[in-house]
């Protein structure tokens, strides 16, 4: 009997020990996983930073805006805060929406918001924009091409990890912005629309 009670006590102690251990293991697994993700993203980031150290807070990017003079896309340099890949890509699109600081044209319709931006492991960037991006009077073929490729080219040009860009509207796949350019397949950059 005594022996038995003793056994039970020891078992209880073991159970408590087990629960504590389980918690420790869980924290360990969870923590290391998070760190792994952070590490992968960190690698992405240092990849893109050319000639700059990763711990600097700002990063220079090249944005492509339409020029009123020749109807082609022209570059404009800009500084964005350093972040992970999707964070920086998001900043690039948000800067495009804000418009140029030099004499180029703002083409993405006002009040457009980036709802979400994420990049898959194989380099496909999903850019989810609010519906305002579809609301423009100038959406003929040329107008649509300019809006689509200022986004696609700016992303692919600045981030090696982004190979293709898919545009979503309000979280959904949509055929076109205004009846012309096909949004249902991902875009590869078309640098022929950029001035030389």
């Amino acid at each position: 009997m005594k022996n038995n009670r003793n056994k039970k006590k020891k078992l209880r102690a073991l159970l408590i020990l087990f629960i504590v251990l389980a918690i420790i293991i869980m924290i360990f697994l969870f923590g290391s996983r998070k760190e792994k993700i952070r590490h992968e993203r960190g690698a992405d980031r240092t990849d893109q930073v050319t000639g700059k150290k990763a711990d600097l807070p700002m990063k220079q990017v090249t944005l492509f805006f339409l020029s009123d003079t020749d109807g082609l896309l022209h570059p404009e340099e800009r500084e964005i805060p350093e972040s992970d890949l999707s964070g920086e890509a998001r900043a690039v699109v948000e800067e495009l929406i804000k418009g140029p600081q030099t004499g180029l044209m703002r083409i993405i319709p006002e009040n457009t918001r980036v709802r979400q931006l994420f990049v898959t492991a194989d380099g496909l960037a999903y850019v989810d924009l609010s519906r305002q991006v579809t609301e423009a009077n100038f959406y003929g073929s040329s107008g649509e091409m300019a809006v689509v490729y200022s986004i696609v080219d700016s992303l692919a040009y600045n981030f090696k990890a982004i190979k293709k860009v898919s545009l979503l509207i309000e979280g959904n796949e949509r055929e076109t912005l205004g009846g012309h350019v096909d949004l249902s397949n991902p875009f590869q950059p078309d640098y022929s629309l950029i001035a030389r």
């Binding site: 339409l66 009123d68 109807g71 044209m105 100038f138 003929g140 073929s141 040329s142 107008g143 205004g178």
Partner: peptide, 11 residues
Amino acid sequence: IHANGSKRAKA
């Protein structure tokens, strides 16, 4: 058949 549109009025 389409008619074109651009943000550039001079296009």
